[in-house]
Write a protein that binds this DNA or RNA. Structure first.
Length: 570
RNA sequence: CGGGAAGUGGCGCAGCCUGGUAGCGCACCUGCUUUGGGAGCAGGGGGUCGUGGGUUCAAAUCCCGCCUUCCCGACCA
């Protein structure tokens, strides 16, 4: 393709509101433009990369026997009522009405639609099945951000497996895990598989594929010792035991005028250090006021609380709700002696004695609290968020926390959607059975942004060959010079014949501009045709990522370049 | 949803405080010179200053409403 005929609007400056590197470079290099918040147009270069990423994903899905579909993006509300997710999804789902006043939704995911199709299966002989599509999803994100990384409209590869039993699901799940490893390797993404929460989609075994990047939005706890890796929403660490002094027979009330925080109580005469305090938070879980108790210096992880309780809406109680229920303001709260409200207490507090906590009366606290003696009928759960340096739950070595982009997610769904859609097949004994599902997703645009986020330098993007918009660019420094343009056109012809996807820069611009553009766009190999080398019958081959250049004769250049590219295609 | 910032030509910004009819860099068009790392000179085109209202002889500028975009937070009582 001729650069002079192409629409590749490069910019010297990134838009002022772009902060993520991938966002800045994809805009500057002419790959994407924002239409509005969370919605991006893919320009020709952007679509080329997007298509190549999708092709890699498609090839690996096909390789595990998955079959490609294309489902509607717009669904009847009824389908979502049947699964119960009409209510669960809340305002993250785009909803609209058609001319007949019927409710319709824009699909955020396609469990319902695929399960509805699966209802046509009637025999165990038809299973297992693995179905997928690459299609637009709509999610009304509370906060779109960072260019292509979090948007409201995006292409996702979503696949779904249907098996007769758990053993079959295990096979489908492992097939996907391996396919995902291959996909990310081909995209040159260093994606680590981590244990994850399955969130609103429901399900149990849940593995996310995470790419470390400062532009990410998830934190992963990672052990260098044993390879334990988990999303912060699920990560666990062991807490060193604390030798509590023995307490008396009962808690003791004491005055703490003006003390409202953990820190204040820690420095208060007669108070207690943070790790010997009980922190009591009042949360509302689907309209149910609930006390949540953690060690004073520990943080609550909201997703852990949501996962444990099964609640879809989790929020802190307002101060007036708190005062109405407990009779005291935040800062003086405690769970001791509380009845009639659910109490969730963090595992790290098991067996703790002689703790200090709020007395549910402003300016008063309790000491000598024995957790298991004094808190009535609590539900124990892992609720606290691990922090860097804590001991790995498996091997005890220190954990580190890495900021990551979630590039893929696979999980075992169970039978929920098959039940909702009435999917059942007869087994070998003629008995109706509900198949079990798995669900597996990769965001195409996000994967593309993750590649950009991890493949760039001060001059611009450095695409891996497998997803580059073009595999090579021929830069003719002075296209008005007949020798140069003849050599350039020869290379273009020969590379095309060798199957190389090639961009030909014939623009009548100064050399600096063309070289800078080629580097900004990030084409992995550049053949430079200029008077200096051509006088000796040579052209220059430069690898984008290393900037290494070698001289090649015009005659050999195309073959050598094609050989290099072929070696990196995977 | 809470907090912060910002909307001025395609991109980046100044002007606003102290009201007087819009400017700079890049990009774009024409010509000449230049041509191995984002050229020089000369000439030129392009902006309802997000939007609606108000104040005023006069509003990009002051006041009020709305819209949009970006960033941080979404919990430590």
């Amino acid at each position: 393709m001729r650069w002079s005929d192409s629409f590749i609007p490069t910019l010297r400056d990134a838009p002022g509101d772009a902060t993520a590197v991938s966002h800045q470079l994809l805009v500057r290099a002419g790959f994407i433009r924002q239409l509005h918040s969370g919605h991006y147009s893919l320009l020709p270069l952007g679509l080329r990369v997007h298509n190549k990423v999708a092709d890699v994903v498609r090839a690996e899905m096909d390789a595990i026997g998955a079959q490609e579909f294309l489902l509607p993006a717009m669904h009847p509300a009824d389908l979502w009522h049947r699964s119960g997710r009409w209510n669960v999804m809340g305002s993250e789902m785009f909803r609209l009405r058609d001319r007949n006043d019927a409710d319709v939704v824009l699909g955020m995911t396609h469990e319902e639609v695929f399960a509805a199709l699966a209802a046509e299966m009637s025999s165990y002989r038809e299973l297992p099945q693995t179905w997928y599509q690459i299609q637009t999803k709509f999610r009304d994100e509370p906060r779109p951000r960072s260019g292509l990384l979090r948007v409201r409209e995006f292409m996702m590869k979503d696949s779904y497996s249907f098996d007769m039993d758990e053993a079959g699901l295990d096979v489908s799940f492992e097939a996907h895990r391996e396919a995902y490893e291959k996909i990310f390797k081909r995209l040159d993404l260093d994606a680590m598989a981590v244990q994850a929460s399955s969130g609103a989609m429901g399900g149990d075994a849940s593995v996310e594929f995470m790419v470390e990047s400062p532009a990410g939005e998830d934190d992963v706890a990672r052990c260098a010792g044993c390879g334990y890796r988990a999303n912060i929403e699920r990560a666990r660490a062991s807490v060193p035991p604390i030798d509590d002094p023995s307490s008396g027979d009962a808690p003791e009330r004491f005055a703490t005028p003006g003390v409202r925080t953990i820190d204040a109580l820690a420095s208060f005469e007669g108070g207690a250090p943070a790790d010997r305090q009980l922190k009591t938070m009042v949360m509302v879980l689907d309209d149910q006021l609930t006390l949540v108790v953690l060690r004073g210096d520990h943080q609550l992880n909201l997703q852990k609380l949501a996962d444990f309780s099964g609640a879809t809406d989790v929020r802190p109680a307002t101060e007036s709700e708190t005062v109405a229920q407990l009779g005291a303001s935040p800062g003086s709260l405690g769970a001791v002696g509380v009845e009639g409200l659910p109490i969730c207490i963090d595992e790290a507090l098991r067996g703790r004695r002689s703790m200090t906590t709020g007395a549910n009366e402003d300016d008063w606290h309790l000491r000598h609290v024995d957790v298991e003696r004094d808190i009535i009928d609590p539900q124990w759960a892992d609720l606290r968020e691990v922090t860097a340096g804590e001991a790995c739950i498996v091997c005890g070595k220190p954990l580190e926390i890495a900021r990551c982009i979630e590039a893929g997610h696979i999980f075992k769904l169970g039978r929920k959607y098959c039940e909702a859609m009435g999917v059942s097949v007869l087994d070998a004994d003629g008995i109706a059975q509900t198949p079990i599902m798995g669900s597996y997703g990769i965001g195409i645009g996000r994967a593309m942004a993750a590649v950009a986020e991890t493949h760039y330098d001060e001059r611009g993007l450095c695409w891996p060959v497998g997803v580059a918009p073009f595999e090579a660019v021929i830069t003719v420094l002075d296209p008005a010079d007949e020798d140069q343009s003849a050599a350039g056109e020869r290379l273009e012809r020969e590379l095309a014949a060798l199957g190389v996807d090639c961009l030909y820069d014939d623009r009548p611009l100064r050399p600096g501009v063309k070289l800078a553009d080629a580097e900004l766009v990030g084409v992995p190999y550049r053949l430079t045709v200029g008077a200096r080398s051509l006088a000796e019958g040579n052209v220059e081959l430069t690898e984008r990522s290393t900037r290494e250049t070698r001289l090649l004769t015009v005659a050999e250049a195309a073959a050598v370049t094609a050989g290099e590219i072929d070696a990196h295609r995977r």
